[in-house]
Amino acid sequence: MAAGGDHGSPDSYRSPLASRYASPEMCFVFSDRYKFRTWRQLWLWLAEAEQTLGLPITDEQIQEMKSNLENIDFKMAAEEEKRLRHDVMAHVHTFGHCCPKAAGIIHLGATSCYVGDNTDLIILRNALDLLLPKLARVISRLADFAKERASLPTLGFTHFQPAQLTTVGKRCCLWIQDLCMDLQNLKRVRDDLRFRGVKGTTGTQASFLQLFEGDDHKVEQLDKMVTEKAGFKRAFIITGQTYTRKVDIEVLSVLASLGASVHKICTDIRLLANLKEMEEPFEKQQIGSSAMPYKRNPMRSERCCSLARHLMTLVMDPLQTASVQWFERTLDDSANRRICLAEAFLTADTILNTLQNISEGLVVYPKVIERRIRQELPFMATENIIMAMVKAGGSRQDCHEKIRVLSQQAASVVKQEGGDNDLIERIQVDAYFSPIHSQLDHLLDPSSFTGRASQQVQRFLEEEVYPLLKPYESVMKVKAELCL
């Protein structure tokens, strides 16, 4: 049975990233139509530049190519590739079939990587351009969430054990800070992308030097003109047959890092959902379990974690691919890159769409948070109580021993009897502590235990987050809708 299948058929496997999760716009960027249309555009740009620099290419040939950029006979191309065992030459023939007058000058002087690699770089750039505003929107939604809850005390956790208090907004800023680093890295790697350009079979530009009869300047002009037509500021000066596969490492490393950030955020949300302090959106008709109707599973956060793990592992592909590119190139890269580049971007696209949807509907339960604080705060307040007693004339050592005994009794009630923490009640009825009984409410005010959390939130948002989001103001209103 021949390899390949009808990918629109229910009898043929289709990647869930495309069929179930990723956005239509990201799927289109990695589609065959987008790819092969870009090949034709690159052939047109090459012909236009070659004509401008004096090669015998007519206006009629150029116009014929322009008129057929979208006229792609995919069936013919597939048949040609089956016959020739070469995808680029299959599309040269297919393009030439609908451009008979231009057929002889299509791909003039070029090698397969002229269309293959340059198209990949265009796709990487455009895919990054799709991700950047999506990530900015996630940051914006979380920034709104953090600002609104900047002063809401909550129990902090280290080692997932109760620690000092923080605020809900401050905790959210930990998430935002990681995503801001990801946004900066995505922008950097996007701006650092260079075009492969017009380089020939081993990167020496020998074929173009021959076409222009040894004119170095025209060869350099050709490279520059096509690079500018493709919208790049610069091209690699040095290439082998391909652009260095280190570029793929750079791009997928940034995406993998984004995956790590999203995994951490969504894990926190899942843990908070278990504590009943916070939940992701839950639709009115949504079913959490087929057997347990009360369940409210954090399905979206779980999906993000599941896909983020996949995204983090994909960076190993370009690392290994770059390491086995012998001399000017081997074909070890080809099949692998067809999979890992598309999957990385479709996965990143999915987790950003999902995280935006989550961040637009996060639900906080202040009463649950308050109750958990009441359970733990008495123990945390013991040092403040000791200091207040010393100020009232008591002995630190005597007070410490009193607190120690009462704390152990209260802990026994919590752990052995399943009761509430009654340390404060014990202190309130103990005559030894009568000098500070009137101060206990103040000493137990949760806001006095959150330090500068709310001020940190305000400063972080104003100095770091809002300036970073400013270039994306025009796209901030787009909502994230999930079908599944």
Rank of each mutant, 00 (worst) to 15 (best):
A3L: 11
Y21L: 01
A22P: 11
P24S: 13
E25D: 14
F28A: 09
F28K: 08
F28L: 09
F36D: 13
L42T: 10
L44W: 06
W45K: 02
A47N: 05
Q51H: 08
Q51I: 08
G54H: 11
L55Y: 07
E60D: 10
E60F: 09
Q63M: 13
Q63A: 10
E64S: 14
K66C: 12
N71M: 11
N71R: 11
E81Y: 01
E81I: 00
R83N: 14
L84W: 15
H91Q: 15
T94L: 15
G96F: 07
P100Y: 11
A103Q: 13
L108Q: 03
T111G: 03
C113T: 05
V115W: 00
D120Y: 09
L121W: 00
I123D: 01
L124C: 13
L132S: 14
P133E: 10
A136S: 15
S140W: 15
F145C: 09
A146W: 01
A150H: 14
A150P: 03
L152K: 06
T154A: 11
P162D: 01
V168N: 03
R171V: 00
W175G: 04
I176G: 04
D178M: 01
L179T: 09
M181N: 09
D182A: 03
L183D: 03
Q184L: 12
N185M: 10
N185D: 06
N185Q: 12
L186S: 10
L186H: 11
R190G: 11
G197T: 01
K199C: 08
T201E: 00
F208M: 11
Q210R: 15
D215K: 15
D215M: 13
D215R: 13
K218I: 08
Q221N: 12
Q221P: 01
T227M: 08
T227R: 07
T227Q: 10
A230N: 04
F232E: 02
A235G: 13
F236Q: 06
I237P: 06
I238V: 13
D248T: 03
I249L: 10
S253W: 09
L258K: 06
C266T: 09
K276E: 06
E277A: 02
E279W: 01
E280A: 04
F282Y: 13
E283F: 08
E283K: 14
E283W: 03
K284R: 13
S290L: 02
P293G: 07
Y294V: 03
K295H: 01
M299S: 14
E302H: 01
S306K: 03
L307I: 09
L307K: 10
M312D: 02
L314I: 10
Q320V: 07
Q320E: 05
A322G: 09
D332R: 02
A335D: 01
R337W: 02
I339P: 02
I339M: 11
A344V: 03
T347H: 08
L355M: 14
L355C: 12
I358K: 09
I358C: 15
S359Q: 08
E360S: 11
V363M: 09
P366I: 04
K367R: 12
K367F: 03
V368L: 04
R371E: 00
R371I: 01
R371L: 01
Q375N: 06
Q375F: 11
E376A: 05
L377V: 06
M380Q: 07
E383M: 03
K391R: 14
A392Y: 08
G394P: 08
Q397I: 08
D398S: 12
E401F: 04
S407T: 08
Q409F: 07
A410K: 08
S412P: 05
G418R: 04
L423H: 06
Q428R: 13
F433E: 03
Q439S: 09
H442G: 13
S447V: 12
T450C: 12
R452K: 07
R452I: 12
L461F: 07
L461V: 14
V465R: 03
Y466G: 15
L469A: 09
